[in-house]
């Protein structure tokens, strides 16, 4: 119940700000533009396929989620409202989870806005609806991780820009660095790195196979992020 309350308030704040609409327009514009640029052959080949769009969205989300999460806690720290919020009868974990859920719903909303791409492409030929479904699902699942990282970063500072850079850096490790490690490290280290890479999981899942190991990975990284963000709120008690 508390989580829903926090989530609602967070969404209301987001849609109240101009920044929100800029983020959404730019996200849609960029995704659309790159899909058209790199995927324009789909219009000629007649092979209806959204995989280009999903790979583009995978990258745009990587950049845009930190922009969405950066204000969540940093701004409350800066303005002092965090003190009011944490002295209400709800747990710090509920605050974090409520904010996380709000960001996730927002991403889902933004992805729903990309349905016109889907409809356009579908009208061109035989589309594999199952592949589209798993593509969207994969995007939503990797968003869970990046939002969690973003909220943790936001909880560490009272400066939104610092939060943005921090969460982009941590996300960079999962998005790119682990992939790089996987290709240069020997043996089991490579395997571990590959397992840690968001990209590997995304590619697997968007191909339509969501395995239990993918879910374990997503769930644990997300939860670790949320717990660390909670600890960062609770740090006030002891210092």
């Amino acid at each position: 119940m508390n989580i829903i309350t926090i989530c609602r308030r967070e969404l209301a704040t987001f849609f109240d700000s101009l920044m929100a609409y800029i983020i959404m327009v730019v996200f849609l514009g960029l995704s659309g533009f790159f899909t058209w640029m790199f995927g324009s052959d789909i219009f000629f080949v007649g092979q209806a396929n959204l995989s280009v769009f999903f790979n583009i969205a995978f990258w745009t989300l990587f950049f845009f989620i930190p922009a969405i999460t950066m204000r969540t806690i940093a701004e409350e720290r800066r303005s002092g409202t965090l003190e009011l919020l944490v002295t209400k009868p709800l747990s710090d974990f509920e605050i974090i989870t409520g904010k996380w859920l709000a960001c996730l719903l927002l991403i889902v909303f933004m992805l729903v806005l990309t349905f016109p791409y889907y409809i356009t492409v579908a009208s061109l030929g035989n589309i594999d609806h199952g592949a589209v479904f798993s593509g969207y699902l994969a995007l939503i699942l990797i968003s869970c991780i990046y939002i969690s990282i973003g909220i943790f970063s936001s909880s560490l500072t009272d400066n939104q820009i610092v939060a943005f850079i921090l969460s982009l850096s941590v996300a960079f490790v999962f998005h790119i660095l682990f992939d790089v490690f996987a290709s240069i490290m020997p043996g089991s280290l490579a395997q571990i790195s590959s397992y840690m890479s968001v990209n590997q999981h995304f590619q697997q899942m968007s191909r339509g196979v969501v395995a239990i190991e993918n879910l374990i990975y997503l769930f644990s990284i997300t939860l670790i992020g949320l717990v660390m963000a909670t600890m960062s709120l609770r740090r006030r008690l002891w210092i």
Partner: peptide, 20 residues
């Protein structure tokens, strides 16, 4: 949690959600 239910608290500098 019990304590927080029973108190009304006005912190120093009265922080508020300006946008609401």
């Amino acid at each position: 949690e019990q304590v927080r239910r029973k108190i009304g608290y006005l912190p120093e500098n009265n922080p508020l959600y300006e946008d609401m």
